[in-house]
Design a protein around this nucleic acid. Structure first.
Lengths: 236, 236
DNA sequence: TGCTGCATCGGACCATGGTCCAATGCGGCG
DNA sequence: CGCCGCATTGGACCATGGTCCGATGCAGCA
């Protein structure tokens, strides 16, 4: 069998590639699945329509090798989904799929650990190219954006933000997400099935890694991932 | 202080119309000013490049009658600037100016109290029409969007959000903004030159009006104005 | 003139958040 | 095997947040 070589030397001759497609638009979901089958007939494909369903699917064993993740989905939009997913499953490759394909958004996605960015406005042949590329574990961005991407320096603050969030453990990220929803420590503890004391310990660690001093600042940091605001600001 | 619905009538025989142009793009700023002069030669125009400068200018007496406010500016982007400004100066008419002219954004702006929405992609004659319209205290939206705007129902949650935020007093809004920046009560008190007690009192009132139970939830509410993503926000 | 909302404070009180000390078990890794 | 990061919890302790009782002065308004 000719499974993609570069992709995890471990899975090269083991089980077939597992691909998870997460998109709330059914039509586009099947279109994506068909495109995947066209370039990787042996892949095992699972489709979901919500972010929670994606997490549930990834919880199965073995988890997917590659996730095609829509940027705008019920339950979580923006880069928060990417950060959450990468905290939980660092080994899983995530490719973002979105119609919101401006340079800044694509760049933020890459900085925050996405393997690639597929524009929903791609035509079929470009989509095939994109899938073939990411299936070999290589970065892919829309060709039309490559030039402007090169001339678009990554903001230092964005790098720092990505580095800090990436330093969180899976459980810490879960806690942070609930904090950013405005829940009390006790509520978070119940939700995660642990003692409130444990949540406090996690929060102390989270504050240290995020370099903030209280929960409000931490939630501001996390929620800055949701800002779809493409504009600004390399210079100020 | 005069109501925004009457300023056109009163300006006929009182002092000339005061217009504040707030945009961080110098070129567009002068273009706007020139367009204003073309349709209202007697108007007194002031230009600023940051949101803070806009607030400072409005603090002068008499304050401007009309503000042309860019959606994306250093210091505050998104609808948070609109909410802040309207809380501080309820009598001032605010017209948003942005290139981000999708239906959802325009509609959110109107729901949150903007008098109009001018697209930066307008041509000169359309810009003139827009300015003439808002100068008579009438709502203006890009003609190209009017049809889709009509068929685009306003989300109930968005209305509620606007109603709650609009219920805040000027000082309460100032406190909320600082809370959403992650500041401690003591720091907010120092910043506003009052006792920490007073901040606590304000916060209790804020929580009641926003129908939340702690500062983190309140800041989530305010920061949801920054989300360029108009999408769904379902309660869990 | 009363009424209402705003903004400011006070005391007492309790809840929540957060830190510093420490410990245990677990699993990966050199 | 020892080391380290992760997750969990405990006790003690303090800081901060938040509420409930009140109060004052002020400005606008019917």
């Amino acid at each position: 069998m000719q499974s993609p070589r570069e992709f995890a030397a471990t899975s090269a001759y083991s089980s077939p590639m597992q691909i998870l497609i997460a998109d709330d638009h059914p039509l586009f979901r099947v279109a994506l699945a068909q495109a995947v089958r066209a370039v990787a007939p042996e892949a095992h494909i699972v489709e979901v329509g919500t972010f929670d369903a994606a997490l549930a699917e990834l919880a199965t064993t073995p988890p997917a090798d590659l996730v095609l993740l829509d940027l705008h989905m019920p339950g979580s939009h923006g880069l928060m989904a990417l950060a959450t997913l990468r905290a939980e499953y660092p080994a899983v490759a995530v490719v973002l799929v979105s119609a919101h394909d401006d340079v800044a958004t694509v760049q933020r996605a890459l900085v925050h650990g996405a393997l690639g960015f597929i524009s929903k406005r791609s035509h079929l042949d470009e989509l095939h190219d994109a899938l073939r590329t990411v299936l070999t574990a290589q970065t892919w961005v829309p060709p039309a954006l490559q030039a402007s991407l090169a001339g678009h320096p990554v903001a230092t603050t964005e790098r720092q933000l990505a580095a800090r969030l990436a330093a969180l453990s899976p459980q810490q990220m879960r806690v942070l997400v609930l904090v950013a929803d405005g829940l009390l420590n006790k509520q978070i503890a119940d939700r995660l099935g642990v003692q409130e004391r444990t949540i406090k310990a996690h929060l102390s660690a989270i504050f240290e890694r995020l370099e903030v001093r209280n929960r409000t600042q931490a939630s501001v940091l996390l929620r800055s991932l949701e800002l779809a605001d493409p504009a600004q600001r390399l210079d100020d």
